[in-house]
Design a protein around this nucleic acid. Structure first.
Lengths: 226, 226
DNA sequence: ACCTGAACACCGTTCAAGT
DNA sequence: ACCTGAACACCGTTCAAGT
C-alpha cells in the first residue's frame, strides 16, 4: 500500500517554519500563551526542543509569526470598495473577530509596537483617513486614534477571555462582571452601577462598532472645520 | 546611639505588603516585568522567597498591587472642577504620564480587565460623560471608547519602552521607527511613508491628547443629534 | 503569626553530537 | 543542512520546619 507514495508526498512530516507556526497556533487556541511550550510543541511535532530553534529564533518570534498568520487571513481585501467609513469598519471588524477567535493574539498585538501586523492595520486605516479628506497634519493622529482604540479593545477582549475558565458560558461571565460592578460602593462608583444593568444584554461587537463610529464622527469634524 | 530608638521605630524592616510592593515597583521601574523575581525580591528584602507568599498570594497579585499603587497616585483629584472635557483630559493625561514613568504598568493595565485600577478610570470617565449630557444608552459605549483608547495607547507606549534598550535616546528611537517606515515598500505602505516624516518632530503626549479630543468631538455629536 | 530555605516541577535556550 | 536530547540557568510556588 506504500507503492503509490511518490516523492512529492515524501517527508510531509519534515519540520518547517510553517508547520511549527501551525502547531503553535493550535496550542495557543487550545490553552492560551501559557500552553505554548517548546517541549509540548516539539512533542506534538515529534522532535526535540532544539530542532525548533533551527527554524525559529526564539519564543517571541514564534508568537509574532503566529499573530501574523492569524491577522493576515482576517483582513478584508484592500479593494473591497464602498465608502472610506465602510472600509475602516471592515478592517476594525476583521481584527475584532480574529481576536475573538484567537484571544492570545490580542495580547500579542498590543505588545507588538511597529510589528508587521500592526503596521498593516495602521496602513489600511491611514489610507482611508486620507480618503476621507482629513488634512495632512491631522491624518497621523486621526489614524492613530482609530488604531489605538482597536488595539485597546483587542487587549481587553484577550484579558477577558483569559480570565474566563474554559467551559464558562459567555452570559455567565457577563453576569459575574455585572455582579462585581453592583457590589461596588454606591457613592464611589455611581456610573458603573448605573451601566451594570446594561451589561447583561449588551453586544460586544455592536458596542465595538459604535466606538469606531464615534471616532469616525470625531474625524468628520476635522474635514469640515467650524 | 540606640538609646533613642523607641518601639515605634522598632522592626521598621519587618516585612509587610507595603514594603514588598514598594520594592517590587523599584525593580519593575529598573528592569521591567522580567526583572521582578521572587528570588531577587526576597534578596532585596533580606528574606527567603517563601516569606513573600505570606503577604501576597502570587506574582499576579503582586503585579496588580504594584499597578494599583502607581495609578492611584497618578489620578487627579475627583473634585478638580472645570468642564467635563477638562476633567476627562486630566484623567487621560494622568494615566498617560504614569505609564510613561512606569511602562510596565501599561502592559499590566491592558491585561487587567475589570481590575480595580481600570474600574476607577472607567468610573471617572463615565461620570464626566454623563455630565456632558450624553443620553443614557450611549453613555456606556462613549465611556468605553475613551477608556479603550487610553488603554491602547498605554499598551503601545509600554511596548515601545520595552523594545528600547536602556540608554537609547528618545529621538534615536523615533529615528529608528521612521527609518523602518521608510524602508517599507512604497506601493504597499504609501500612508506610513507619508507620515514617517512627521514622526521625527512629533510629540507623543500632544498626539495622545489630540486623540482624546477627537473622541470628545465624536461624543459631542451624540449630545446634539442631527 | 510570621519567617526560613530546601525542594518540586517546571521553563526557554544552548550545544556537542549525530545523520 | 537539519535534527537529537541532555544539560544549563533559570523560573514560580510549596511546605516542613523553625521562632
Amino acid at each position: 500500500m506504500a507503492t503509490r507514495t511518490r516523492n512529492t508526498e515524501r517527508r510531509e512530516d519534515a519540520l518547517s517554519k510553517e508547520r511549527i507556526i501551525e502547531a503553535a497556533v493550535e496550542m495557543l487556541d487550545a490553552g492560551g500563551e501559557s500552553a505554548l511550550t517548546f517541549r509540548a510543541l516539539s512533542a506534538t511535532l515529534k522532535t526535540g526542543p532544539g530542532a525548533i530553534y533551527w527554524h525559529v529564533a526564539n519564543k517571541g518570534e514564534l508568537l509574532t509569526a503566529a499573530t501574523d498568520a492569524i491577522l493576515t487571513g482576517a483582513m478584508p481585501p484592500a479593494d473591497a470598495g464602498g465608502t472610506p467609513q465602510e472600509a475602516i469598519r471592515a478592517v476594525a471588524i476583521g481584527v475584532f473577530d480574529a481576536i475573538e477567535a484567537h484571544p492570545w493574539a490580542g495580547e500579542q498585538m498590543s505588545q507588538l509596537a511597529s510589528q508587521s501586523t500592526t503596521l498593516r492595520v495602521f496602513e489600511r486605516i491611514g489610507r482611508q483617513v486620507q480618503a476621507l479628506g482629513v488634512p495632512g497634519p491631522a491624518q497621523f493622529f486621526a489614524a492613530s486614534a482609530l488604531l489605538n482604540y482597536i488595539l485597546g479593545v483587542a487587549a481587553q477582549n484577550a484579558a477577558m477571555a483569559r480570565s474566563v475558565q474554559q467551559g464558562t458560558d459567555r452570559t455567565e461571565v457577563l453576569d459575574m462582571v455585572a455582579a462585581l460592578w453592583n457590589s461596588l460602593d454606591t457613592d464611589e462608583y455611581p456610573f458603573l452601577r448605573t451601566i451594570a444593568a446594561q451589561l447583561r444584554d449588551h453586544d460586544d461587537r455592536a458596542q465595538f462598532l459604535a466606538g469606531v463610529d464615534l471616532i469616525l464622527a470625531g474625524i468628520a469634524t476635522l474635514t469640515r472645520p467650524a
